[in-house]
Each structure stands twice: as C-alpha cells, then as structure tokens.
C-alpha cells in the first residue's frame, strides 16, 4: 500500500500544488488573504469578546494577550477541522475519478492532509508576521513544540476523517452530522475563551476532550512561551494512533464496496 503511494507521489504533490492554485486563482489579493483572514477573525472575536463581553486573560501582562491566545488556538483548530471535514467528503467529491481510474485511493486523503499542512504553515507564517508587526511579539524557543502539535493533530484528524469519510460513502448523513459535531466541538474547546472561566461542573468535559491538550500546545508556546506537559499528551497521542490504525483497517475492509456505493 505504501509502495504504491510512493509511485504516485508526483500526482499527490501536483494535486497539493493545484489545490493551492485553485485557492488563489482569479483572486486579486492572492496570498494576502492568508494574513487578512486570521487578522479579520482575531479582530472580530477581540471586539465581541474582549471589548463587549469584557473577557480578560488572567496573569498575562501583554496588552495583546487575548488576540494572541485566540490566534494560536484558532491556528491549531483550523488544521484539525480542515483535515477532518475535507477527508469526510473527499471520496464522494472524487467519485468520478475513483470509478474510472485505478490508483491508490488512500492518496486522496493524503492530498487533503498535504494541502491542509501547507495552508497551516502559511497561516503560521502569517501569524508570525501579525505578532511581530502588530503586537511586537517574537517567536521563542517553545515554538519548537508546535511541530509536535501538528503531528498529533494530524493523526487525530486524519484517522477520524478517513474513518468517517468511508462511512459517509455509504450513508451521507455522516457528513451532515459531522458539520454540527465539529461546531459543537469547537465551542467546548477553550479557544475563544480561557479555560479558567469554565465553571467547575463543566471542567470534566474539558478533561475528556482530546483536542484540549493539543490546542494548549499552541497557546502555551505562543502566549506563555511554555513547553507542553508530556503527561497531558499521552491520551490524545494514543487516541490519534488508534484512530489512524482503525481508519486503515476500515478502509481496507470497505475498499471492495467503496466504488460500488459511489
């Protein structure tokens, strides 16, 4: 399976490049949108939450603490939700190719993952620029923990995405339910609000959420310059490995049926 994926590496690379091209095709501002989008998001949330609702982060002296906290959390979340939601729909989206050409089908979610990674790296670069230019914050050594976050988020999102993507071929409700679940999941993860404001009774939900320690890697590194706590990462890493393994098993089993249902 991995050998045939290697044979098709040029197609995979070319598809990722084409994804990029599609994103900027016929767009006047092109790559500028990479900076404009997160900036606009930070601005909207800052105004609504920090100014209107008066949300404040405790124990941080920096004036731009909230936008930094927000952007770092959003960066992590965007990577997760992009891989997950696009993988869920990818087999249906590429139905005609799957039906008419023989090629390793697993290359489709790998293309999704690859272009999400490229997007993510560009987003991080944009955030770096925003932090430096607008908030006077420069990256510190703890940023080196971010690749670990990328790897763990990728595993979790890819595993879940491929697993649900296969199921979605047979029952299209899966993608619909996913859309709602991802939204809910976003709001039960401390991204736009700090964990400290969550009432005592709900802290258990946050403890169960595997995305929390992963998002925290980004927030800790970018806002506090702190390294992640390895113990907190054991659970999400395990879930990630299990999800990837499970998705491969289901993918192999369903493979014969997959094209029939498209």
């Amino acid at each position: 399976m991995f050998k045939s994926l290697w044979t098709f590496r040029h197609f995979i690379m070319s598809s990722i490049r084409a994804d990029m091209r599609n994103r900027f095709a016929r767009s006047r501002l092109g790559a500028m949108w990479f900076i404009l989008h997160p900036l606009a998001q930070a601005l909207i949330f800052s105004i609504v939450l920090a100014e209107v609702l008066g949300a404040r982060l405790e124990g941080v002296e920096i004036e731009a603490a909230y936008p930094i906290y927000l952007l770092s959390g959003l960066a992590a979340w965007t990577l997760f939700s992009e891989i997950l939601t696009r993988s869920v729909g990818i087999f249906i989206e590429q139905a005609s190719v799957l039906k008419k050409i023989t090629f390793p089908r697993l290359s489709l979610p790998i293309i999704v993952w690859g272009s999400a990674m490229v997007n993510h790296l560009l987003l991080l670069a944009a955030i770096l620029v925003i932090f430096a230019v607008m908030f006077g914050q420069y990256p510190n050594a703890a940023w080196l923990a971010i690749p670990l976050g990328m790897a763990l988020i990728s595993m979790l999102a890819f595993g879940l995405g491929v697993f649900l993507g296969v199921l979605n071929v047979f029952s299209r409700d899966v993608a619909q339910v996913m859309t709602v679940v991802v939204q809910l999941w976003f709001w039960i993860t401390p991204i736009v609000y700090p964990r400290s404001i969550v009432p005592e009774g709900y802290q258990a939900i946050i403890d169960l959420n595997p995305m929390v320690p992963l998002v925290t890697i980004y927030q800790d590194a970018m806002l506090y310059g702190a390294w992640p706590d390895p113990r907190a990462l054991i659970v999400p890493a395990t879930i990630g490995v299990v999800a990837v393994a499970l998705s491969f098993v289901v993918f192999r089993r369903a493979s014969a049926d997959l094209v029939d249902a498209l």
Binding site: F8, F11, S14, S15, A18, R21, V97, K100, T102
Partner: peptide
C-alpha cells in the same frame, strides 16, 4: 482505460501541467 475523457484533469492547471498531473494519476 479510457472510460471518460478528461477525468482526473484539474481545471485550473494548464494543458501542459495536466499532462503531468493526470498522467501521474494514470501511473
């Protein structure tokens, strides 16, 4: 197999780029 002409082509890519793109998909 030519089951449908143009399947695997990426519309944003040029003809030349598609030779490499879709050609890669064909193995």
């Amino acid at each position: 197999a030519i089951l449908e002409l143009g399947v695997g082509f990426n519309l944003e890519l040029t003809g030349r780029q598609n030779i490499f793109h879709a050609g890669g998909l064909m193995g």
